[in-house]
Amino acid sequence: MRAHDIDAVLTSLNTIILGKAAVTKLALTCLLAKGHLLIEDLPGVGKTTLAHSLAKILGLDFQRIQFTSDMLPADIVGVSVFERDSNQFNFHKGPIFSQLILSDEVNRATPRTQSALLESMEERQVSIEGQTYVLPEPFFVIATQNPSNQIGTFPLPESQLDRFLMRLELGYPNAEAERSLLTGVDRNSLLQKQEAVINSEQLLQIQNAVTDIHVSSALIDYVQKLLDYSRVSERYHYGLSPRAGLGLVHAAQAWALIEQREQVLPEDIQAVFGSVVGHRLISREGQSAEQLATDILSQVPIP
């Protein structure tokens, strides 16, 4: 039943996002692994559509926050307002109190605002004036980022990039997909019509099932070797953090679940490796993230 659900989710997703099966699968993996997703690409390739359709299909509350340079933390987390009627402060929840949040163009905001978002992403709760407000479950942030060489951006520092489980690039659709995009029904109206395939309750169950996927010590050996390689090799500015390793295992578990397996295989690690590791490694030789990932994978033998 669960396998059927996941399949259905993926199929629906792929009817809206055309020709990007690999990316949608990874995005779903990220969500099932309870990680947050960073999508980095040019405007207009379908980042928002992806976020929106995920929310729709999985039956989640959806909030979109458009980041701008004059945005304040309160615009995200909420604000306490004094109300005359009751003669006391009342907390007005911000847009972050939602199950799926699309933080559009996160690198347009000032670092202060960015941190507010990233902190609540990590903690899954918001503290204001001594009060702690727990964020809803499931909680999933998709942040989009324009390529950092564009004008008027505050690129996210490495420490904050590390908080995203995956970074994905959508890229241009292939010719066939683009043709059906251009001739077919408007995506927005498609989205409007889309029914939820599962509800948030079911999603939580699936998320919990991810952690039950067996991770053998042989696999841990492999992960350690990969981490080691990134730390020992001269080709990277910094090695991978333990959090990256943890993310790698979680993501691989989610991937194995989607692949309907009960155990994580080296292939699962390899499948998620590029998107988990890409934004955490900086090459000394100016290689692209994809190139880095394939290099490491081809260099490290499976024990």
């Binding site: 295989l265 080296p266 292939e267 081809s298 260099q299 490290v300 033998p301 499976i302």
Partner: peptide, 9 residues
């Protein structure tokens, strides 16, 4: 089998 090739692939 390449040494970085998983059993399934």
């Amino acid at each position: 089998r390449d040494n970085h090739e998983g059993p399934l692939s």
